[in-house]
Design a protein around this nucleic acid. Structure first.
Length: 313
DNA sequence: GGGCAGGTGTAAT
DNA sequence: ATTACACCTGCC
C-alpha cells in the first residue's frame, strides 16, 4: 500500500523533477505529472506519484524509503516550508508574476558526488544527452539495484573505468574531467561530506579547483548537493531571465548576475534561481527573443501577462 | 553545414 | 581582470 507524505504539500512533483536538478527520473505515463515517476535515491529504486490528494510513495512502501524521499525533497533541512520561501520570493515584483506558473519547485537534497559528476557532464551539453550519458554511466559502472536500474557509479568505479567505457557513455572531452574528479575523491583530496560543514565561500573555492568545475557547476553542486540554498548557478537561461526581468534586457556578465541575485535574494537565492530558470526555459527563446513559448512545458499554464514580467529598475 | 546545447580551460590582452 | 576560442557529440 502506498504511503502518503502530507508534509510534501506545496511541492509540485513534476515541476521539481523536471527543473533540471536531477537527471535520472522517468515518467511512466508522459511528463504531465499524471502517472508515476521512477528514480534512484541513495542506491534504491523509488516509485512515486502525485495526484489531487497529495504525494505518494508507491514502492517500496517502507518507512526507510519514506524518510529517504522526505530528505531528498528537502523537507527536513532547508530554509523553511516551501510556501514560506515562495511567499518571501513573491515580494519581488518580477518573481510575483513568475511564481503562479512555477510554484512548487523544491530544491532537492541530492548526493553531492552524483551532483558534481552530473553537472561536470552538463557543461556545453544538452539535457537529453546529459541524461543519456548519466544513465549509460550507471548501466556500465553502477551496481544493479533491480527493475533494470543501477546505482550511480562510486568514485572508485569511475576512477578505475577504462577510457573506452567513458567514451561509450558519450562524455566526449569531459571524460578526463570526470575521471580526475573521481580520482580526487578516491585519493581523499576531495571530501564532499566534509565540504558540507565548511563556509559556503570556502566550499565553493574547493569545488572550483576540481577539473571541469567552473562557477556554474560549483554553484549547482553547492545548491543541489551541499544544502547551500544561497547558491545561485548562472547558466544561459537564468542569465537571459535576469537580464530580461531586472535589467531591461541589457547584457550583464554572469558575475554581475550572480552578485545581483545574492544581494536581492540572500539565503533563498537558489529557490529564486529555480523559478527564473523554469520561466526562461518556458518563455524565453535563444538570445532572449520575445517569440513566446519555445518549449511550452507540459506543466506550464498560460504565459504571464502580455510579454511577460516587466523590469523593475 | 554552421550553430547550438544548463560551460570550462587556456591563451592572449 | 576580462575576452576570444576550441571543444565531444547529436541534432536542426
Amino acid at each position: 500500500m502506498a504511503i502518503h507524505l502530507p508534509e510534501a504539500e506545496g511541492v509540485h512533483l513534476a515541476r521539481t523533477l523536471e527543473s533540471g536538478q536531477a537527471f535520472r527520473w522517468r515518467w511512466e505515463r508522459g511528463a504531465s505529472g499524471r502517472g508515476a515517476v521512477v528514480g534512484v535515491i541513495g542506491g534504491r529504486v523509488l516509485r512515486i506519484l502525485q495526484d489531487e490528494r497529495g504525494l505518494w510513495l508507491i514502492s517500496p512502501p517502507t518507512d526507510a524509503a519514506r524518510r529517504r524521499l522526505r530528505t531528498y525533497l528537502g523537507l527536513l533541512a532547508g530554509p523553511g516550508r516551501l510556501s514560506d520561501v515562495e511567499a518571501a520570493l513573491a515580494r519581488d515584483p518580477a518573481l510575483s508574476r513568475v511564481l503562479p506558473h512555477t510554484r512548487g519547485i523544491a530544491v532537492l537534497a541530492q548526493d553531492p558526488w552524483e551532483v558534481l559528476i552530473s553537472f561536470i557532464i552538463s557543461a556545453n551539453n544538452n539535457i537529453p544527452k546529459i541524461r543519456q550519458s548519466i544513465e549509460q554511466l550507471a548501466r556500465s559502472l553502477g551496481e544493479p539495484i533491480g527493475k533494470g536500474r543501477h546505482a550511480f557509479p562510486t568514485p572508485e568505479r569511475l576512477a578505475a573505468a577504462p577510457a573506452r567505457t567513458l567514451a561509450a557513455c558519450l562524455l566526449g572531452y569531459r571524460a578526463p574531467y570526470v575521471r580526475a574528479a573521481a580520482r580526487l575523491v578516491v585519493d581523499g583530496r576531495l571530501d564532499l561530506r566534509a565540504l558540507r560543514r565548511r563556509p559556503v565561500d570556502e566550499a565553493r573555492e574547493t569545488l572550483l579547483s576540481v577539473p571541469g568545475v567552473g562557477d556554474k557547476v560549483a554553484d549547482c553542486t553547492l545548491l543541489f548537493g551541499l544544502g547551500q540554498t544561497a547558491a545561485f548557478p548562472v547558466d544561459v537561461w537564468v542569465k537571459r531571465a535576469v537580464e530580461r526581468l531586472y535589467f531591461r534586457g541589457r547584457a550583464r556578465t554572469a558575475g554581475q548576475i550572480r552578485a545581483f541575485a545574492q544581494a536581492r535574494f540572500g539565503p533563498i537565492s537558489g529557490y529564486a534561481q529555480q523559478h527564473l530558470f523554469a520561466y526562461a526555459r518556458a518563455y524565453l527563446g535563444p538570445r532572449g527573443a520575445r517569440s513566446g513559448p519555445v518549449r511550452p512545458g507540459l506543466w506550464m499554464t498560460e504565459p504571464p501577462r502580455r510579454a511577460g514580467p516587466t523590469p523593475t529598475d
